[in-house]
Amino acid sequence: MTKSHGRGRVWLSVISAAMVAESSFANAAELNILTWEGYADPSFIEKFEQSSGCKTTSTYVGSNDDFAPKLAAGGGVYDIIVPSIDTIGLMRQAGFVQPIDTSKIEGWANVYPEFSTATDVAAEGETWSVPLVWGSISLMYRPDKIEPAPDSIGVLFDPKYKGKIAMWDDKSSLYWTARLLGYDNIYDLTDEQLETVKQKLIEQKPLIRKYWATAGELTELYANQEIWVSNTWTGLQSKEVNALDKGFQVVEFTPKEKAEGWMDSMQLVKGTPNEECAYKFFSFMLNADGQCGIVGSTGYFPVNPDAVSACLTGAEAEAKKVNNIEFVKSLVMWQMPARLDKYLETWNAVKAAP
């Protein structure tokens, strides 16, 4: 797909208007991180704080669409943000982040080059983010309730499971629906295609129990037996649900329409006074304690295979796709939509529909 330099222009202008001219950042040596659940678990964050002398405070997002509004309204609260690969370019275009000096990051050379040189990670002759962790988005269901075993995204649109379906409250719901409809250009849909996707999602709404926002919320929906099937962040929520031992298990599967792939990376908020701590954090997270820690807390896949050589071996390494970059190529990797503002408008129209 040819990327448009004008992508998201309307939304970017709104963001720019909301940005404050002067920012009052947190005190030096105190990193404020805007990130995802499981990415700041005490099991490894405490090691960072002890070794670096830098205190951390983490705020969690439920969607990539949360980053820009929080930064625009935050008045300089955050030092590091951790958006996905389809959002890091927007953060650069909006002027929220500054380039990364990779010479200051221990472990940078060992990151999969498919990530360290990816579009928007590297742009305009600079590096704009530090890859952290990656994975896929699959489907998850209760095999005791849904038979036969599903193999398609279509299970999320099956009237037989009305009231027992959940979908992530994220614009990626458009991608899922577009793939179900057989569209290959899911990040550059035409107006007509977007309209068809919107109508398909509006037709689905009576079947939906909840659009979930966080990993914890989806886990509770299953734990309370409110839902039987959903999309899911592969590896994380199934582990959490099954660990509750509620008398049932959930199973993940990759639909025949393929799974989406993502990579989350760390970005340095423009003007932060805490660069020294930020670079210590980048180095920590790319090495053994950080990579093993975040893989252990989330179930996701490491970006630095060398860093996990001691903590992931044999079957564990195979399950986490260590040195299996071919798996990345099998996924429909996220990209920033060519017309981001139109995609957001469409998704918001779906949610606003009765």
Rank of each mutant, 00 (worst) to 15 (best):
A26C: 12
Y60P: 07
P83A: 13
L34E: 04
V14T: 15
E276P: 05
K70Y: 13
Q237D: 10
Y175C: 14
Q249I: 08
N27I: 07
V130H: 07
E22F: 03
L286I: 00
S13D: 14
Q249G: 05
D144A: 01
Y183P: 10
S116M: 12
F282N: 06
S138R: 04
F44K: 15
K55M: 15
L207H: 06
I227N: 10
F96H: 02
N64Y: 13
A123S: 11
A319D: 04
W134G: 00
K280Y: 07
N287C: 02
D191P: 02
L71A: 05
F44G: 15
D341P: 08
L139K: 00
K164P: 08
V61A: 14
E326L: 04
A338P: 02
V133A: 02
T119R: 13
W347G: 02
F282Y: 05
F157T: 06
K205Q: 01
F301E: 01
S238M: 11
G182W: 12
M285R: 06
A72R: 14
G235E: 14
V303M: 04
S230Q: 01
K321H: 06
P159V: 09
V121I: 11
A118N: 09
M140H: 00
F281D: 06
A215D: 15
D306Q: 02
I137N: 10
A118V: 07
F96Q: 04
S4T: 07
Q225A: 15
K160R: 12
I146V: 00
S138F: 01
E114M: 08
W36F: 09
A29W: 07
E226Q: 14
A178R: 14
V229I: 03
K160C: 04
P354C: 02
K351I: 00
K171V: 13
S116L: 12
L189A: 09
I325Y: 03
Q204C: 02
F157M: 10
V77E: 12
W334S: 11
G125P: 11
I294W: 05
I202D: 00
V133I: 06
T59Y: 15
L201T: 01
P273C: 11
S116R: 13
H5I: 07
K239N: 15
E276W: 04
V20H: 14
Q225S: 15
L268G: 11
V97R: 02
I208L: 02
N64W: 14
F281Y: 03
K3L: 06
R179Q: 12
P255N: 11
Q291L: 03
L244V: 12
S103F: 06
I165Y: 04
L180K: 11
Y141H: 01
C311T: 05
I45R: 10
V121H: 13
W128I: 13
P159W: 07
W228K: 04
A118W: 05
T87Y: 09
S129T: 05
A122Y: 12
A310P: 06
I153H: 09
T2E: 14
M266G: 14
V121M: 09
P302H: 00
